[in-house]
Simulated assay, not measured.
Amino acid sequence: MLDETAQQFTQVFNAVCAYGWQHGEKNGVRLHHATYYELREAYPRLNANVLIQARIKATEALKSAFDRKAKDRKARQPQSKLCPIRYNERTYVLNWQIQEVSLSTINGRILVPFKVPPYSSKYVGYQVTTADLCISNGRYWLHVVVSVPDPNIPRHDEVIGVDLGLNRPAVTSNRHFLGSRHWKEIERRRFRLRRKLQSKGTKSAKRHLKKVSGRSLRFHRDCDHVLSKRIVQNATSGSTIVIENLTHIRSTSKIRKKTETSRRLHNWSFAQFHSFLIYKAQERGMQVVKIDPRHTSQTCSQCGHQHRSNRKSQSLFLCKHCGYCLNADLNAAYNIRNKHLASLGISLASGSPSDGLASQASA
């Protein structure tokens, strides 16, 4: 019953996507009026609320595809082979005590027992909102979204600037160099493998490419989880974490195309990292703030002198005005912190000539 429900859910999702793509429509209300009654007749056994959730998912996919198309990026009609079923509070009921969930299917409600993984046990008992039923290799996973109240943690005056980069994943103003150097080498190996498989073009090579793509996505997700967790762990509860606003960096960057740096920039999942950092920080009562990243790498955090020649290399910053010398990423982290403090009307000159290259601490 779950398999058949998932197939009908996927067919509704694809039908709404096809209509929206053909008519250039991404508005959820207009898509609902244009497709709901026809799909309701075509799939009478599918719960009405579940069908609406399929339309909502299709609307989200269409918005993403049309946004890519507007930016002159590669985009095509969204389509799914097996779309995860989305449930809301009207179509499923979860019982934490007996670990059983009631799910709507094409044949009515069914009761399904579940197990909570150890890493998710801390969320048991919280109020549930939506859930997605994912089916993979004959196994069923219910991704439940829970509503967790904000922790009662007093605010702390500490402000930590975080410089994000391609060479050094993250450098904080409290002098922590986070991330691992082998991440970059893994990406290089995967890129060489993808290029080799693409040049072959055989069926087996394409199957291998699909597997490599999945591994790469999971690897990026794991790296973002590790990096965001380390940033939060190295900060005081209740403090403020300041990062750069990198929303339009791909379009505003002056890096030459068809280079390794350009390729890594376009594979940079900073939006995913930001979402991970926000919810991990919320658990410890922290606030995440974005600031304008312009000139943070060219400005001296000691005297405020700004010039592009201040940055001698990727890792070395040497101020032409006062001679202040330290790691370039650490200097940028200081500037990110100071920029936020300046917006609050607080002036802080961080660092001293002794905060040089020898201060790097690996994590």
Score class of each variant (00 low, 15 high):
Gln11Ala: 13
Val12Met: 05
Cys17Ile: 01
Tyr19Ile: 00
Trp21Thr: 08
Gly28Cys: 07
Leu31Cys: 04
His33Ala: 08
His33Leu: 03
Ala34Ile: 04
Glu38Asn: 04
Leu39Asp: 09
Ala42Met: 00
Tyr43Ile: 00
Ile52Asn: 10
Arg55Ala: 05
Glu60Asn: 14
Leu62Asp: 12
Leu62Trp: 09
Phe66Glu: 13
Asp67Asn: 15
Ala70Gln: 10
Ala70Asp: 12
Arg73His: 14
Lys74Ile: 09
Arg76Lys: 14
Gln79Ile: 03
Asn88Arg: 02
Thr91Phe: 09
Gln99Lys: 15
Ser102Leu: 13
Leu103Val: 11
Ser104Thr: 10
Ile106Pro: 02
Gly108Lys: 10
Lys115Gln: 02
Val116Ile: 11
Pro117Ile: 10
Pro117Val: 10
Tyr119Gln: 14
Tyr119Ile: 08
Val124Trp: 07
Gln127His: 08
Thr129Leu: 05
Thr130Arg: 14
Ala131Gln: 11
Ser136Gln: 15
Gly138Val: 04
Trp141Phe: 15
Ile153Met: 07
Pro154Met: 06
Arg155Glu: 15
Glu158Lys: 04
Glu158Thr: 06
Val159Asn: 04
Gly161Ile: 11
Gly161Trp: 10
Val162Ser: 08
Gly165Arg: 05
Asn167Met: 06
Val171His: 08
Val171Trp: 05
Thr172Ala: 03
Leu178Gln: 07
Ser180Gly: 05
Trp183Tyr: 13
Lys184Asp: 09
Ile186Lys: 12
Glu187Pro: 00
Arg192His: 12
Arg194Gln: 15
Arg195Tyr: 06
Lys200Trp: 15
Arg207Met: 10
Arg207Pro: 04
Leu209Ser: 04
Val212Asn: 11
Val212Gln: 10
Ser213Leu: 03
Leu217Pro: 01
Arg218Asn: 15
Arg218Cys: 13
Phe219Gln: 11
Asp222Asn: 14
Arg230Tyr: 05
Val232Phe: 05
Gln233Val: 06
Ala235Lys: 06
Thr240Asn: 04
Val242Ala: 11
Leu246Lys: 08
Thr247Trp: 05
His248Ser: 10
Ser251Phe: 06
Thr252Trp: 15
Lys254Leu: 13
Lys254Glu: 13
Glu260Trp: 14
Arg263Pro: 00
Arg263His: 13
Arg264Met: 01
Arg264Ala: 05
Leu265Val: 04
Trp268Asp: 04
Ser269Ile: 05
Phe270Ile: 12
Phe273Arg: 06
Phe273His: 04
Ser275Gly: 01
Ser275Phe: 03
Glu283Asn: 13
Gly285Tyr: 13
Gly285Leu: 05
Met286Tyr: 02
Gln287Val: 14
Ile291Asp: 08
Cys300Leu: 02
Ser309Ile: 02
Gln314Val: 03
Phe317Pro: 03
Lys320Cys: 02
Cys322Ala: 06
Tyr324Asp: 01
Tyr324His: 08
Cys325Ile: 08
Asn327Tyr: 04
Ala328Arg: 03
Ala328Phe: 03
Ala332Glu: 09
Asn338Pro: 05
Asn338Leu: 01
Asn338Glu: 07
His340Tyr: 15
Leu341Gly: 02
Ala342Lys: 12
Gly345Asp: 12
Ile346His: 07
Ser350Lys: 01
Pro353Gly: 10
Ser354Asn: 07
Ser354Asp: 06
Gly356His: 01
Ala363Thr: 10
